[in-house]
Simulated scan of single mutants.
Amino acid sequence: MFVGITNAPRDYAWGSRTAIPEFLGTPPSGGPEAELWLGAHPGSPARLADGSGDLRTVLDDRLPFLLKVLAAASPLSLQAHPTPAQAEEGFAREEASGVPIDAPNRSYKDPFHKPELLVAVSDTFDALCGFRPVAEILASLARLPASAGLEDLRGRLTGDGSLPAVFKWLITRGEGVEELVAELPRRAAGVEGLEFETVRRLAAGFPGDPGIVISLLLNTVRLSRGEALYLPAGNIHAYLEGLGIELMAASDNVLRGGLTAKHVDVPELLKVLDFTPRPIPYLEPEVTSSGVRIFRPDVPDFALAEVMVDGGGEARVPLPGPAIALCTGGAVHVSGGHADRALVRSEACYISPDEGELTIAGSGTVFVATTNA
């Protein structure tokens, strides 16, 4: 079964006014277009293209993933997501305490985890992702003019094991933090390096926010087109600027840590964060014999295939479960075991799991989200 789907982009303030329309060849709305949701999440379920309802009406089971086109013109909030066990416990706790599901101070909207991957489709895509070793942080700080606040920060960074205490000191605005947040952008003025460019960007958008200093504790990455990140549970991150295809488990559980006017639940965030320093979490694709790039994380909820065909052959995509296909350029013909559908740029469809392996022909690009075999 192939079912055409569509949706209206979410108008979050950080969204670009032009990136999604230019990418998909659709008319701009005149306002910010931050995220186009293609899935069955109740927050913005995809609509059936024939106008007869939304995607949830044709599903037999819960769709475990959510496909998005994401366009950030300014930074998103610092955030992390829980493990399955943390999500189940937190959701049950807030349900039992009677916190309304739509309350602004609600942390757990559902009992599911929310790992996610992002593939850059703009020329560059900037992000913060995960803690870096203290030795690297100190090397960055050594490039800045000395000050009492920076000396205080250096003195607290006694090794990788000090990261939880330093993070807590910053996010709770402990003694000296306000002064440090104010002085860091001045010290970083004119200093080269992506991490200092990020400090200046955050200071311009979120003056006085501890996230300005926290950003120096984190990996700063500038993805090139086609590169991908995978952000598992506990990884603190923030998308800064760029256009990408994002795929995640179908959940809305977000623990925020700054760079936002929304609720920041510090105790809960500290419980879910993984403070272990790790390299930038690039996700390398598998490349199949027909040239399909498949981004396959370590969770069963989702995998993402990027398919490019040029009219000279066919590409095949295995389908272990339900799928959503989005054409982002040209025109393609997608065939399964029982049905088929033509897609042109900006069109999307839901594909039932009984279609098995997909064959894609034509000349264009299509992203296929499905479960992870």
Rank of each mutant, 00 (worst) to 15 (best):
G364Q: 14
L157A: 07
D265C: 03
R132S: 04
D126V: 00
V272N: 00
F302P: 07
I212H: 05
C129Q: 14
E94H: 12
A249I: 02
L76V: 00
A204N: 09
L150F: 01
T260P: 11
G356R: 05
T198M: 12
A135R: 15
F125L: 12
S77Q: 11
P75V: 00
F65E: 01
R222E: 06
L343R: 05
A87V: 04
G174A: 11
P297R: 03
G15Q: 00
A233T: 03
R293Q: 13
S74A: 15
V272I: 08
S122P: 08
G242S: 03
I214A: 09
P9V: 07
H81Y: 01
F131Y: 14
L150P: 04
P115D: 03
E95G: 04
D110A: 03
L326H: 02
I351F: 10
E95A: 11
F65Y: 10
R201K: 08
E95I: 03
L67K: 10
R173S: 13
P82N: 02
I351T: 00
G39N: 06
V221S: 00
A315D: 04
A303I: 11
S97A: 15
L304A: 05
L343Q: 02
G211M: 08
P104S: 09
D252L: 12
A250K: 10
P100R: 00
E94N: 05
T365W: 06
G31E: 13
P28H: 11
V254Q: 07
V134I: 02
Y239E: 11
P82V: 01
G291I: 05
D340H: 15
T288K: 12
G30E: 07
R47N: 13
A87K: 07
S335K: 15
D265S: 12
T371Y: 09
A325I: 09
